[in-house]
């Protein structure tokens, strides 16, 4: 039995799991130490990231803001493709993002969106691409993944949480859910070269300029409640 094992190991017929080194994907630090750990260093560069979430306003931009600030200050372009609302310039300015590097692109149909994404991803000037592409077929994500590999930029697709069950070739898939008071829970659904299932919770109170501590009911007033 022992002899058999030795032969197998010597001929490298089996994969020795304990020697498995973690594949290092080049990554761009997220700016949150507690998030870098489950992501294996940060946002993967030259690969797709999917963020699956319901709606807006739960701190999803707060996640990418430190990377956006750093990349734009480094002279890299930041593309927002088909954002659901208007990226608000005074707020970005407040957050010290270089607005000269920020570009908003709106497209009319899905073909244009994919084409734009692909072109932006392949361009050497691109630092970060944020896209709200809507429904995508697995084949199309694969194509985008290849384009992302050609460039070295960070690409984050914001998609609906219903697509979590869909099979996707993206290198990193995160599920974002609001968590209690101003918290954002991030669950790693898939990570290339790492284990899925990890999760962490970030406090994103600073997005509204609030204190980080639990202090619900900071403001109370005799205001008329919105009419139904």
């Amino acid at each position: 039995m022992n002899e058999l094992l030795t032969t197998l190991i010597q001929e490298v017929r089996v994969w020795p799991g304990h020697r498995h080194h973690r594949a290092r994907i080049p990554a761009e630090a997220t700016g949150y130490r507690e998030l870098d750990e489950p992501l294996g260093g940060g946002w993967p560069r030259g690969a797709l990231t999917e963020c699956l979430l319901d709606g807006v306003g739960m701190g999803e931009l707060q996640l990418v803001l430190p990377a956006m600030r750093r990349l734009s200050r480094r002279g890299k372009r930041v593309f927002w493709i088909n954002p659901p609302h208007i990226p608000y310039a005074p707020a970005l300015d407040q957050e010290d993002v270089d607005l000269n590097q920020v570009l908003v692109i709106r497209t009319n149909n899905r073909g244009d969106t994919l084409w734009t994404l692909e072109n932006c991803l392949r361009a050497p000037v691109t630092g970060l691409v944020l896209a709200w592409p809507g429904g995508l077929a697995s084949r199309e994500i694969r194509r985008l993944q290849l384009a992302a590999e050609a460039g070295r930029s960070v690409c984050i697709l914001f998609r609906d949480r219903r697509q979590a069950s869909q099979n996707s070739p993206a290198a990193l898939r995160l599920q974002l859910t609001p968590d209690g008071y101003l918290g954002l829970n991030i669950q790693v659904l898939k990570r290339r070269g790492g284990r899925p299932g990890q999760s962490c919770t970030l406090n994103t109170a600073r997005r509204a300029g609030l204190a980080q501590t639990e202090a619900s009911g900071v403001v109370q007033g005799p205001w008329t409640v919105p009419r139904e």
């Binding site: 807006v56 306003g57 931009l61 707060q62 803001l65 954002p83 659901p84 609302h85 208007i86 990226p87 608000y88 005074p90 707020a91 970005l92 300015d93 407040q94 957050e95 010290d96 008071y181 997005r207 509204a208 300029g209 609030l210 619900s216 009911g217 900071v218 403001v219 109370q220 007033g221 205001w223 409640v225 919105p226 139904e228």
Partner: peptide, 29 residues
């Protein structure tokens, strides 16, 4: 950067949308 009295949101709606429900918590204002 001009010092704004309050914090500004990263998303601005193209046109204001009627608030249909009572908020769960009033945080500042």
């Amino acid at each position: 950067v001009p010092v704004l009295p309050g914090h500004r949101p990263l998303w601005l709606l193209a046109s204001p949308y009627p608030l249909g429900e009572a908020p769960a918590a009033w945080l500042s204002g």
